[in-house]
Amino acid sequence: MNIITPEKTDKQFLEKIEKESGQNLTACNQCGKCTAGCPIAGFFDIMPHEVMRSLQWGLKDDLLNSHFIWLCVNCMACRERCPREISVSEVADALRREAVKEGVKPAEPDVATFHKNFMGVITMNGRLHEVMLTALQNVFTFKPFKDAMLGVGLFLKGRLKLLPGRIKDAGFLKLISGRLKKN
């Protein structure tokens, strides 16, 4: 049922996300400017201002199962323009992390896979390698040849390196990946 009752709400969730995101969530007074300026609001299931409202209620399940948390591209337009200086973008990050932690099945599996692959490449090399990332993404989303022709074109123009480069300080890389795993 769509009905909201206090019993369905989780105020601790509000506090948790408040802490995680570093944002004052009760400060939102629902002016709607975040949604008004969001370049991809048209693709969301829950609008940015509705995300804030749902958080104020503590509607945990609605948020963690939403497409929004995976579709937000963190462009920061909301944060730049919010009169109450709230970053919905940071909130989306916090919600996404929470969804992963809680093992919620992502509403946008391809995006979740992308995040995983991206982090995989970074922790392996310390920097991004487009060929590796694209290959991993296409394999894990079962479209192995999706970007093959584009890749060939880019390679012929000298825009792609076939082998990844690694950062020089291997110890630092280990430190980063260790910390990431801990979190």
Binding site: N2, I3, I4, T5, P6, Q30, H49, E50, R53, S54, W57
Partner: peptide
């Protein structure tokens, strides 16, 4: 109702 979320609300 919560007109921002467009959902009914029921509070005991």
């Amino acid at each position: 109702s919560d007109t921002i979320l467009g959902r009914p609300v029921e509070i005991a």
